[in-house]
Write a protein that binds this DNA or RNA. Structure first.
Length: 139
DNA sequence: TAGGCCATCTGGTCCT
DNA sequence: AGGACCAGATGGCCTA
């Protein structure tokens, strides 16, 4: 049951853990890489014009959609649209990391432990939920 | 220096 | 048509 997390010995850590309080030495903004998010809001994505188009792949072999069986259409976008898509993707990843951070705060860790990676966070959360479920079912 | 982790870019696919 | 989601590629940073 607890073998999901090979690199975290949950049973061993339980007696001494606080549910909250992993040190936040390393927030989402770990490398200052999100400093530009402020400027993201300033960028008017609506300026991405719609003079772009879908075009049939002009290459020799046009691939076929696995789901529809129709020929795949290559989506051609302008550099402005590409930039806007990059910004949206950064925002999306930012909110994903915010969710990881809030999950990190919910799973028990030793205060001195280094920040959990995303995969460690997910695995520990799975084990933690299973552990708590086990406790509830045996009471 | 190798390996792990992460941010970012990019193109494909799905959905509205 | 365009945004959301996803996965692959790439490069930087950090640690053992």
């Amino acid at each position: 049951m607890f073998d999901l997390v090979s690199d975290v010995d949950f049973m061993e850590m339980m007696p001494n853990t606080s549910v909250l309080g992993p040190k936040e030495t390393h927030s989402t903004d770990c490398n200052g890489l999100y400093q530009d998010l402020t400027s993201i809001h300033a960028l008017d994505i609506s300026t991405a014009r719609s003079n772009d188009f879908y075009a049939l792949s002009s290459s020799t072999a046009s691939p076929v959609s696995a789901s529809t069986g129709k020929p795949k259409r290559k989506r051609v976008i302008s550099s402005v649209q590409r930039q806007a898509a990059n910004i949206r993707e950064r925002k999306r990843m930012f909110s994903l990391n915010e969710a990881f951070d809030s999950l990190r705060r919910k799973v028990p860790t030793f205060a001195y432990e280094k920040r959990l990676s995303r995969i460690e966070t997910l695995r520990l959360a799975i084990v933690y939920i299973a552990f708590m479920t086990d406790i509830l079912e045996n009471n």
